[in-house]
Nucleic acid binder design. Sequence first.
DNA 1: CAGCTACAGTAACATTTGTCACATGGATTA
DNA 2: TAATCCATGTGACAAATGTTACTGTAGCTG
Lengths: 211, 211
Amino acid sequence: MSETTISLKKNFPNFSNDLIEEIEAHCNFQTFKSGDIVMRTGQYIKNTVLILKGQLKIYREGDDGEEFLLYYLEPGQACAISLICSSKNQTSQITAKVVEDVEAVTIPLTLMDKWMMNHRSWYEFVIYTYRTRFEEVLEVVDNIAFRAMDERLEFYLKRHAKACGCKEINLSHQEIALELNTSREVISRLLKKMEQRGLVRLHRNQIELMI
Amino acid sequence: MSETTISLKKNFPNFSNDLIEEIEAHCNFQTFKSGDIVMRTGQYIKNTVLILKGQLKIYREGDDGEEFLLYYLEPGQACAISLICSSKNQTSQITAKVVEDVEAVTIPLTLMDKWMMNHRSWYEFVIYTYRTRFEEVLEVVDNIAFRAMDERLEFYLKRHAKACGCKEINLSHQEIALELNTSREVISRLLKKMEQRGLVRLHRNQIELMI
DNA sequence: CAGCTACAGTAACATTTGTCACATGGATTA
DNA sequence: TAATCCATGTGACAAATGTTACTGTAGCTG
């Protein structure tokens, strides 16, 4: 059994053996480096990506190049947008950037359409992915619609800690500001207040989450 | 041919005859009055709704009962959320309220799951619906993430005019404020400015869009 | 070490948005 | 007609956020 097969089985345990064989037979194994753009707003979608290793972030771009974070993609997941754009010449509404070096399998759209009918486990995966991503985006809407920046920052830090599985967040204030579409000064100010409340400890290039 | 069948064929022209027959055989025709809540946040989803007539609005509820508008549903459309919640005991993440008296067909979840496999036209409808709704919500994210209230108000008015097909918008400032999650005074203020710029004319209970 | 750069802290101020208070005027009802 | 709602207008102020400008400091590099 190839290494890719093992990784697929591990990260996508619900896929049937048939499906895994098909993936092996027709799809490409690919790697991306930290900072790479895997998909860009406006680009035609030609395939989808199953993540085996690493981390991607999916964000929405503003008119002046602002990056508004929607969610992260991790091993065992796939880009929801590209799962469902059917065979039409659909362009991407989002941009996907590599956070941690990624190993992935790319799947052409034409195959996906066939699999939806022939592979129950693929169908269920697509439905599940779509539903959870929709919910995640709705949560993002909640945050920006109903909450002020201090709460959003807290939410952001917690989500980040959860994604990386640790309490030390290695991001500059500038990077956080970008993803929340505000300015560095605002983030610095709010982090200071959080420190005073004992919620974090601030270090250079690192925020230690105490909650 | 029954009246419902005619309406279904008219509003869902891509549905196959087989599918329409199945809908006729197994589903209920239902009406809702303006102001009715068709689906509420936290409720279990037992069926989906195909709109034949009228208008629904789909919104997200804040912790204190704020209503943040996501999009409108019109004839020929269906609630995306409920299309995809599979057979699990999923609860609704949104609330759907009737704007204009609605005639609709309700479809139990169990059938939908079957149809995805057996009816190509249903499958395509679901995929299409999901994709377009996702895009619509992403546009909402853009608005609140990147734009200030004046632009959002302008966008809101245009969308509303488009939805009702006319330039006269019969809403109070209070109602608009609710949907944009701000206060009446802010809306009054911004509308006045828009009037000074010649973009609208203000009347009692009506805003005339000049663009 | 000197010089450079990136990151962080912070004061001062502008702008936007939210809130309170109150006035006006149309529409409806007793 | 008088009383009463409701929608709207508006001034004054508070709070949150964005902007500008400057400081200090850690870490790197020649």
